[in-house]
């Protein structure tokens, strides 16, 4: 049985001047799931999160959260936490001010978890928050998002500036808290390899358009990489959709959409070609490169 939708984006377009930051995007985030919003810089991830969190309105199309449109909807907005990667804090705010105020806005705020995270991330009581380093700001955003226990928790590249230890701490805290208090988590990331195990679903966007929406399980079989002597590789994939190409001398490595039958796999091995399922990171990079190539082709 499919989980009910926490977030539905239906044909949403957001235009800034003449530029479409997001164009006719549709996807669903089920309740109690961790969904990754993936794509290159400028793909439209933050704009999509702004639309979902009611911090912005679509120029056309629709966004629904728990079945209602979020913009100026107090009931829905109070069920959300969305801390931007470049989140601004009130002037003269210290850490204690943030921790004092946040519980008033989040009904399910967990002060104990917040204190544990602040301690773990070693967030200083001084200086003022606006003088925090990049990593400290990210850590504060993680504290706000996780401790809020908001039914819709959105993280915008939450790892920026964090060292490896702090990132691992975030992943552990997210997993543990999500297991104890399931909710809809939507997070954007470029560290796909690191976070892949956290994600149940992914939404891939590029240049404001939806490229693919699927469960990570289904995506795992959505493409494969094949490498070997260039002529043999090219001959083998003839007729298939190549997402990405990487050439070193006479060797060629391709990321190819689709799956291979056992017979095709055997044929590839016989031809001396190496096969491997495409990792999510490769797939996202490939979709980005693929779309860029298509656009260049269209311009030519």
């Amino acid at each position: 049985m499919t989980a009910p939708a926490a977030i539905e984006v239906i044909g949403a377009t957001r235009r800034f001047g003449r530029r479409n930051a997001v164009e006719d995007v549709s996807f669903t985030v089920p309740e109690n799931s961790v969904t990754g919003l993936l794509g290159r810089n400028g793909a439209g991830k933050t704009t999509i999160m702004s639309l979902v969190s009611g911090q912005d309105r679509p120029t056309s199309g629709e966004v629904r959260v728990f079945g209602e449109q979020p913009f100026e909807n107090g009931r829905i907005l109070s069920s959300m936490s969305f801390v931007r990667d470049n989140q601004r804090y009130p002037e003269d705010y210290y850490l204690r001010h943030v921790l004092d105020v946040a519980p008033r806005f989040h009904e399910r705020w967990d002060a104990e978890l917040a204190a544990r995270l602040v301690d773990g991330f070693r967030l200083p009581a001084k200086p003022v928050v606006k003088k925090y380093s990049r990593g400290q700001l990210s850590a504060l955003g993680i504290v706000l998002g996780l401790a809020s226990r908001a039914p819709i928790t959105i993280f915008d590249e939450p790892y920026l500036g964090l060292d490896a230890t702090a990132r691992a701490m975030f992943y552990d805290a997210l997993l543990q808290d999500y297991a104890e208090h399931p909710r809809a988590v939507l997070l954007s990331t470029h560290l796909i390899d690191e976070m892949e195990s956290l994600l149940e679903r992914v939404v891939i966007v590029d240049k404001g358009r939806l490229i693919r929406e699927d469960s990570t399980e289904d995506l795992a079989g959505a493409a494969f990489t094949i490498s070997g002597i260039a002529a043999a590789v090219t001959g083998f994939v003839d007729g298939r959709r190549v997402l990405r190409e990487h050439r070193v001398g006479g060797l060629l490595s391709l990321t190819v959409e689709g799956a291979l039958s056992p017979a095709e796999k055997a044929e590839a091995r016989d031809a001396g070609l190496d096969l491997a399922p495409a990792r999510l990171q490769e797939l996202v990079a490939a979709y980005g490169a693929d779309l860029a190539n298509e656009n260049e082709g269209a311009r030519a």
């Binding site: 969190s53 009611g54 911090q55 100026e72 909807n73 107090g74 907005l77 109070s78 069920s79 959300m80 936490s81 969305f82 801390v83 931007r84 989140q87 601004r88 804090y89 009130p90 002037e91 705010y93 105020v101 946040a102 806005f105 989040h106 706000l144 908001a150």
Partner: peptide, 15 residues
Amino acid sequence: TAFPFSLALGTTRRS
């Protein structure tokens, strides 16, 4: 400076 933070916490613009 407070408006962006207020929205991050889930406040309406009217509120």
